[in-house]
Design a protein around this nucleic acid. Structure first.
Lengths: 231, 231
DNA sequence: GTTAACAATATTGTTGACAATCACGACCTG
DNA sequence: CAGGTCGTGATTGTCAACAATATTGTTAAC
């Protein structure tokens, strides 16, 4: 067994008992948030009756929500044995990062081809803020800039399909992204990579943008691989 | 309205009425097959009660299966208005192909790095068979070789995450792949591309393999774009 | 003839109860 | 004491009835 946290009892919704019910869609959102935010930890069992009680929903709706999360790869289900939060192995986290590399690189290329004047301004601004954040040693500001940058690039690229896929994968690997961001020297290491991506897009050099993005995520993958090898 | 086939009534499973029930998982597989195979056409309405009757399942299970297909992007659901088979626009088909290009290119690169002696034999053999198929004008054999080749490359690459993503996307766009394969000159056009991919992998030249795959799917995307523009 | 209100119908959303299955431990048996 | 077997409790799987909502059809007023 080894790893199987039974975890505490959190009552996100203390129903009076009468039952102001939670809808299936709403429940899906809430459960997804709970998994992605780490409120529900990897390998944690998800007992349908418990969830129903805690979120004030019927078991049927819990079941539907679990079906959703399962096909998003956030939880695992086995026949007659229930569901648990999926634990992503370091190897899989590396694979996910490699796939993201391919996709975000595609997005960076498209973004370079389609970027507008005003978007260039926004990108440059993010670059400046990230640089300042590193100078100040403000990790939170840097992390926020990072998120903002990737999101903006995807938006500029206009690639819906890639965007959804990237999102799905990111949700699965958040834990690793989070841990990586905690490393003290990480911002200084990745800042030039981010600036190179911004330069590539702003100068409308599709190839440069794509390969800069590819390099960036290769570096992330290498870092995960190195950090998690001994865990 | 314009496009909204109400389609005929197919009774895949004429229950005697007593009810040898269909399980939720099984129903999911069957419905997925029906959508991917084109038995259920785009925009066709999927009325829960009808499906339940036709497949000999309870409506609850139908509902769960629909939830699955919905997060796989095979059907669309709107609140209180039901589900219908998702119609992929030509633009989206192009996007899907571009994303597949990025991912299969990644797989080709990894495959070139990891390919074994025996796998090289298999790849070369597929190449020979596809060449002969073109010479004979045997479209079915060529198509089979095509499928086999892409599958083998993904297998050799060992990329689980990419593999699943590619599969999901392919299911969504089968209709376009099918139509493309119908074009009479298509095999002759794509054969050299396929051979280039095989050469790249077999000579363990990762860059060559990756770019050959990228080129191949760019060509597919261009073809879809040209063919479907006027539709 | 067109629009608005309203009734009737079709369809989806939700729920609680029942059935099937599985994990665990007591208990026998050699 | 090893090993099997047979309850028993916990949990998931299934179902059919009920509630809520959207759509369609009808009537009547303007």
């Amino acid at each position: 067994m080894g790893v199987s946290p039974e975890a505490s009892s959190a009552e996100p919704n203390a129903q009076s008992k009468a039952a102001p019910r939670t809808t299936a869609a709403e429940l899906g959102r809430r459960l997804r948030d709970a998994v992605v935010s780490g409120q529900l930890v990897p390998n944690q069992r998800l007992v349908e009756a418990d969830l129903a009680a805690e979120y004030g929903a019927s078991r049927g709706n819990v079941r539907i929500a679990l079906t959703e999360l399962s096909s998003e790869g956030l939880i695992e289900r086995v026949q007659n044995r229930g569901a648990r939060v999926r634990a992503i192995s370091p190897d899989e986290a590396v694979e996910i990062t490699e796939v993201r590399g391919a996709l975000e690189s595609l997005c960076a290329r498209k973004a370079a081809e389609r970027v507008s004047r005003s978007e260039i301004e926004l990108l440059r601004d993010i670059g400046r803020r990230m640089t300042q954040a590193v100078e100040r040693g403000d990790r939170d500001a840097y992390s926020a800039g990072n998120t903002e940058l990737h999101a903006l690039i995807i938006k500029v690229s206009g690639q819906q399909v890639a965007a959804e896929t990237i999102n799905r994968l990111r949700s699965q690997a958040v834990r690793y992204q989070y841990r990586l961001a905690q490393r003290p020297d990480r911002p200084a290491q990745s800042l030039p990579q981010h600036l190179a991506i911004i330069d590539g897009i702003c100068s409308q050099d599709a190839e440069a943008a794509a390969s800069a993005m590819q390099d960036h995520l290769r570096s992330v993958a290498a870092e995960i691989s190195a950090t998690e090898a001994s865990v």
